[in-house]
């Protein structure tokens, strides 16, 4: 299988006054094409930092991150913007929809600047929101808003889909609906998907689970049979 990401010896520290905080202490990791990966760990384990570096939102302090041979740790700001624009789909814990745009328009906001995107309506159908297309965020439930966010992330046909605690703000039932949507787009579109969570129950839906603690990978777990999110509960 082709590695979409290859991270080698990635470190990240923040200087907070006189204290240096090590968020990542040399992480080696790959993400393969079409794979569903879950990054599991308690808060402060470095999983969000890693995701931010993979997504081109933050720069590593050391090591290298190759996206299909392109070293994003050395990229300029402008190149990172183009990288996010073309290749990366993001889903955030708090959805981050644009309140002044309808569901359809939120998706269109991304497809308008993408190369070869799908139709916004098509993306919303994929997450089961065909009947809510013209609703504004204020008219949607949290789960529906998160599904719009997923549609927005995948409408550009990204190579990678990065989800940061996508169910963190939702109850379990709604969370499962959202995870189903992520699972579905991963299978149907083949985007390499990384889901961050501190909820171990979610790990069951992954091909591979990366356990993180203290800024490093503690162990990697392979699921022979990834489970349907429907079968998960917490």
């Amino acid at each position: 299988m082709e590695a979409v990401f290859a991270a080698r010896a990635v470190t990240k520290f923040y200087d907070m006054g006189e204290v240096r905080v090590h968020a990542l202490r040399g992480v080696d990791i790959e993400l393969y094409s079409g794979e569903m990966m879950v990054l599991l760990g308690p808060s402060g384990s470095g999983k969000s930092t890693l995701l931010n570096i993979l997504g081109g939102l933050d720069r590593a302090s050391g090591g290298s991150v190759l996206y299909r041979g392109f070293d994003i740790t050395a990229a300029k700001d402008r190149e990172l913007t183009q990288y996010r624009r073309r290749h990366v789909g993001f889903v955030f814990q708090f959805y981050n929809l644009i309140p002044s745009l309808t569901a359809l328009e939120n998706v269109a906001a991304v497809t308008e600047i993408a190369e070869n995107p799908m139709k916004p309506a098509e993306a919303l159908e994929l997450v089961g929101l065909a009947d809510r297309m013209h609703h504004f965020p204020s008219q949607l439930s949290g789960g529906q808003q998160q599904r719009v966010a997923i549609a927005r992330a995948i409408a550009k046909r990204p190579s990678v889909l990065l989800c940061d605690e996508p169910t963190g703000a939702l109850d379990s039932e709604t969370g499962i609906v959202v995870l189903e949507a992520i699972d579905k787009v991963n299978r149907e579109l083949g985007a390499a998907t990384a889901v961050i969570t501190h909820n171990a129950d979610i790990a069951g839906m992954a091909d591979r689970v990366i356990h993180m603690s203290n800024g490093g990978v503690s162990h990697v777990e392979l699921n022979a049979n990834r489970r349907n999110p429907r079968e998960l509960h917490w």
Binding site: T81, F90, N96, I98, P99, I113, R152
Partner: peptide
């Protein structure tokens, strides 16, 4: 700010 930062994350340039 949050909205604009979200758009930056989604790949909007500073100019946009």
């Amino acid at each position: 700010g949050r909205e604009l930062a979200s758009l930056r994350v989604l790949g909007y340039t500073r100019g946009e």
